[in-house]
């Protein structure tokens, strides 16, 4: 355990019920990359990643890189992430997008890339860069839950899809893979900004970890 604590410089905490079981560090560790998938269209995975990034330590700059430049700063501000912390980059293709993310991670920044495809080699390179530079990398992809190119280079892999909401927007968050943890399915609500100025946050509303058949397993 002591060794693990040295391996990762910081952790983005996430409220999970039996977090020790699903995420050994009770959150998303820094010095690593994490992958968020979000079906065909929509931005549920983006919102989930943004709400996690709010917990970044200190004044670590965040690099947003994509080849469509679609993230909308007022929307980020609405979720509690100050766009003034962010640097935005537009790449001309996937390779340049991932290359830029690798440079940022090696320099110790937090990086968010909206990538199309991700080869095993690219994922491994990004993971190494994040480990060397103590950065944290988020990959946002429109991809199905399982692809033939999945690797264990990202420390966690998530599938985030929207579900019909009751009062606040609700997300179905599936932990597809976690290093040293178990997959699970969770339901989160994005709480609105409170009257006392508390920013929007993720609130766990239900967990479906133990229902047989709910968890998809690779291979």
């Amino acid at each position: 355990m002591e060794q693990m604590r040295n391996m990762y410089p910081f952790t983005l905490s996430l409220d999970l019920p039996i977090s020790g079981r699903h995420l050994p560090r009770a959150g998303l560790p820094g010095g690593a990359i994490h992958e968020f998938r979000g079906g065909d269209a929509g931005a549920a995975h983006v919102a989930f990643a943004v709400l996690l990034l709010v917990g970044l330590p200190g004044n670590m700059p965040i690099l947003w890189v994509s080849f469509s430049a679609s993230s909308y700063p007022p929307g980020l501000a609405g979720l509690g992430l100050d766009p003034a912390r962010c640097l935005f980059a537009k790449a001309k293709d996937d390779a340049e997008c991932l290359g830029t993310l690798e440079t940022a991670l090696r320099g110790g920044m937090a990086g968010v890339a909206e990538a199309g495809s991700l080869s095993r080699l690219a994922a491994r390179r990004l993971a190494l860069a994040a480990k060397q530079g103590n950065g944290i990398g988020f990959l946002l992809r429109h991809a199905p839950a399982f692809t033939p190119l999945d690797s264990t280079a990202p420390v966690t892999r998530w599938m985030v899809t929207p579900v019909p909401s009751l009062s606040a927007p609700r997300l179905r968050v599936e932990l597809l893979y976690a290093k040293g943890g178990r997959p699970g399915v969770f339901f989160y609500e994005i709480t609105k900004e409170a009257d006392d100025g508390a920013p929007p946050a993720l609130a766990l509303v239900a967990e479906r970890a133990d229902i047989a058949g709910q968890i998809r397993r690779a291979g």
């Binding site: 690099l63 007022p74 003034a84 640097l87 980059a89 537009k90 440079t103 920044m109």
Partner: peptide, 22 residues
């Protein structure tokens, strides 16, 4: 982070790398 920012700035060009202000 300045050296990292320089590297990305010169690779992508000033048009493709920016901050935002309201």
């Amino acid at each position: 982070y300045r050296q990292t920012v320089d590297t990305i700035l010169n690779r992508l060009g000033p048009k493709n790398f920016w901050r935002v202000t309201p």
